[in-house]
Structures are given as C-alpha cells and as structure tokens.
C-alpha cells in the first residue's frame, strides 16, 4: 500500500470512531469540554480554599495546563491499548496494515484534544495572558505528545492481545501518573534530584512546556524540548518494532 493510501485509511478509521461516538448522543462535543472544566473547578476549589497552595496566580489556568495534556494521554492510552482487541473482527478478517488500528484510535482521541486545547486557549486569554510568539511551539509540543501515545499504545495494544491484564496495568499507571505529573503542584517544588523523572516523562514535559509558553510567556528550555522529542520518537520506533514482531500471531490469539 502506498503512503497516501495509509493517510486515507487512517482518516476513514478516525472518522468511523468519531461518527460512532457522536451519532447516538444528544450533547456530542459538549462532553469534551465538560470533563476538564469540572476537574479544573474541583482542583481549584481544593487547592485555593481547602489546602492553601498559595502563591500561584490564576491557579485555574495553572491546573488546566496540567489537566488537558494529562487527560488526553490517559484516555488515548487506555483506548489505544484495548483497540486491537476491540477491533478483533478487523484484525482477524480484513487485510490491512494492523498498525493503523491503535494509531487511528489514538488519533480519534485527538479530536477531543483539539477541542480541549481550544478551551485552554480561551481560558488563558480570558485570564488576561497575551498571545506571544512562543505559541508557535504549541503544535509541536502537543504533536510530540500524540507521537508518544501512539508509540506507547502500539506496545501496549500488542501485549494486550496476549495478556488481557495489560489494560489494568495501563489504568494503574495512569493513576500513578496523575500524581507524578505536576498537574496541581509546581515543578519548582520538586527536589532537583528528581527532575529527570519529570523531564524524561513526556506528559510532564508537555505540561511544563505548556505553562512556560502560555503563562510565563517564555520559550520552554531547549533541553526540555530535546528530551521530549527524544523520548517520543524513541517510543514510536520501539512501538513499531514491538508491534511488528507481535502482530503476526494476533489472529491466533483473538
């Protein structure tokens, strides 16, 4: 199959997921906005009224910069992980490059991501932060997160065929990650010896870069971006490799 046909195939699968999800709903896209807004309100209430985090101006913007990249990651990874199993009929009976199954599932989640990024931008502007030239980096930063989730989902979806426990491992990992990504606390509170744990975690790196750009009006440190690029591309390459090895036996185990 030629490269541009891959694009057409992917876009059709993404469209399929999107249509299926929204056709039988009454509120549709509204749900994409509701979840982060609720999370933002709850966390803002807890950390400005209950635990006095103090110091951080516009805590709701601060929290939203964390929630949106994290939410996308968590939801896309879980749905990517179960995608091959969910699409067993496609994998067993239709001749297609099987990599497109987890990748299209992750990309289908990007539609929500884009809507939620729109929400983030709206909240940032409403809080009075000006647009600056570093905003041009945002698509690359979010794009690398998508690349990372694709790579991770290629690995986990392939393993999930052999061990159906993988989806629960992923869910637990997401819970851990909610605390290990600086969503409701500042990176500056993290002792320096733990910094690599955050900088090499693409989700944390995206959150940090997001705050640099949107709230500080500054470019993220280049080392942060290099690490993000490195880890994301590494995971995509590893994902393609592992998936390519494991996909041959999918039909026997589904």
């Amino acid at each position: 199959m030629r490269v541009w046909n891959y694009g057409f195939l992917l876009s059709n699968l993404v469209l399929r997921d999107f249509r299926i999800r929204y056709r039988n709903m009454s509120l549709g896209v509204f749900w994409s906005l509701l979840n982060p807004l609720v999370m933002m309100s709850v966390l803002t209430f807890i950390f400005t009224k209950v635990f006095l985090a103090g110091g951080t101006r516009n805590f709701h913007v601060f929290v939203l910069c964390g929630i949106i990249p994290y939410n996308f990651f968590a939801v896309a990874w879980v749905s990517g992980t179960t995608s091959v199993f969910q699409n067993a009929g496609l994998v067993k009976r239709v001749i297609l490059p099987r990599e497109v199954v987890p990748v299209s599932t992750v990309l289908a989640n990007c539609i929500h991501f884009v809507i939620q990024i729109g929400l983030l931008v709206a909240v940032v502007l409403a809080a009075g932060y000006p647009v600056n030239r570093h905003w041009a980096l945002l698509p690359a930063v979010f794009g690398l997160e998508v690349v990372f989730v694709c790579g991770l989902s290629l690995v986990s979806s392939a393993l999930d065929v052999y061990f159906r426990d993988v989806r629960y491992v992923v869910e637990s990992a997401n819970t851990v990650l909610f605390w290990m990504v600086p969503i409701f606390y500042s990176f500056t509170l993290v002792p320096p010896r733990f910094h690599p744990l955050y900088q090499y975690n693409p989700v944390a790196a995206v959150v940090l870069a997001c705050r640099n750009i949107l709230m500080d009006g500054a470019a993220p440190p280049p080392t942060l971006l290099y690490k993000l690029l490195f880890v994301s591309v590494l995971f995509l390459a590893a994902g393609l490799l592992v998936f390519g090895r494991l996909k041959r036996r999918f039909a026997d185990y589904l």
Partner: peptide, 28 residues
C-alpha cells in the same frame, strides 16, 4: 471471510462503502 467484517452497524451503507474501500487499500 466473514459477513460484514470491516463494516460497522451504526454507519450508513455509503459510509461503510467508503470505509471498506479504504480498508481494501483504495486511494481517496
């Protein structure tokens, strides 16, 4: 190989035709 594999019940016939054509390697 199996009736309706690659088809989705919630999509229309036309949407399924396009999806299936893509699955079979057609270009846009």
């Amino acid at each position: 190989l199996e009736l309706g594999s690659g088809f989705h019940p919630d999509l229309t016939g036309a949407e399924n035709v396009r999806l299936n054509a893509a699955l079979l390697g057609f270009s846009r």
